[in-house]
Amino acid sequence: MQRTLSFEIFRYTAIFAFLALSLIPTIWMISMAFKPIAEWQASGADLTWWPNNPTLDNFRFIFGDSGSDLIVALERTAGRPILASLLSASFGTLIAMTAGTAAAYGLSRFGAGGNLPLALIQLRIFPPMAVMIPVMIMWAFLGLIDTWVGLALIYGIVTMPFSFWLMKTFFDDMPREIEDAALVEGCSRWRVFIKITLPMMRPALASSALFVFILNWSDYLIALLLTTRDWVTIPVYMASLSSSMTGQLYGAKAALGLIAAVPPVIMGIAIQKQLVRGLTFGALKE
C-alpha cells in the first residue's frame, strides 16, 4: 500500500467512521446503565445520549436495594444468576480443559484417538438446538436440570472442541527435545507430561482456558433450556427484568448487561494474540 498523505487521511477517516458506528450500541448501553429512572424511561424527543444525573441506582436495584425510585421490588436479585454464570462457566471450562488438554497431548505425542479431531469439529458444527431433546431427557434422568453442575457438564462437552484443538496446535508447536532429555534421564512418560510439559505450557493453558471461559459465559440457549429457576444464568435472568406491570426495565437490564459484558471483553483483549488460533481451530496461528 502506498504511504501517501491522502491514503493516511483515508485510512483514519474510514477506521474512525467504522468505529463510530460500531461503538454506538455499547456506548448506549453504558449510558443507560448509569441513567436515573426518569432518563432511561424517556423516549423520542426527550432522549438523552449521556446521563445528565449519573447514578448507580440501576446497579443497586438489581442487587435488591429497593430504595430506588422504582415501586417494584425484585422477586429475585441478580446475585444468584451471576453466581450461576460464574460456577457453570468456570467448571465447564475446567472440564473442557482437562479432557481437551489430555486428549490433545495423547494425540499429538502418541497418535492416540485419531478419530477425535473430526468428531470434535462435527460436534462444533451441529446446532445445539438439534441435540437438545435427548440432552434434556438425559439431564432430567440424571437429576441435572436446573443445577449448575448440569450446566457445567454440557458446557464442558460443547467447548471441548476448542480446548482440544487449541492445545493440540500448542503441543504440535512445542519442541520435543526437552521432553526427550527428561526421558533419557529416566523419567516416566506420565511424569514428563505432569512435571515438564504442562508447566511449560502454562501460558498456552491460560489463554485457552480464558478463550473457553468466554464461550461458556456467552451461552444463552443451553441455559434457557436446562435451567428453570434456581440456577438461571445472567442472560436468562435478564428476561425476567421486564413484566407486564413494569414494562421493560431498561436501566436495570443495561446495568446487568454491562456486568455480563465486561469480563469477556477484558479477557478477550488479554488473549488477543490467541483469538485467531482459537476461532479457526488452530488453522491459523498469528
Binding site: F18, S22, T26, I214, W217, M238, G257, A261, P264, V265
Partner: peptide, 11 residues
C-alpha cells in the same frame, strides 16, 4: 474494533 465480538450475544 474487536470489542463487539466479545460482547455476550444475548446482551
Amino acid at each position: 474494533i474487536l470489542v463487539p465480538m466479545m460482547v455476550v450475544p444475548a446482551v
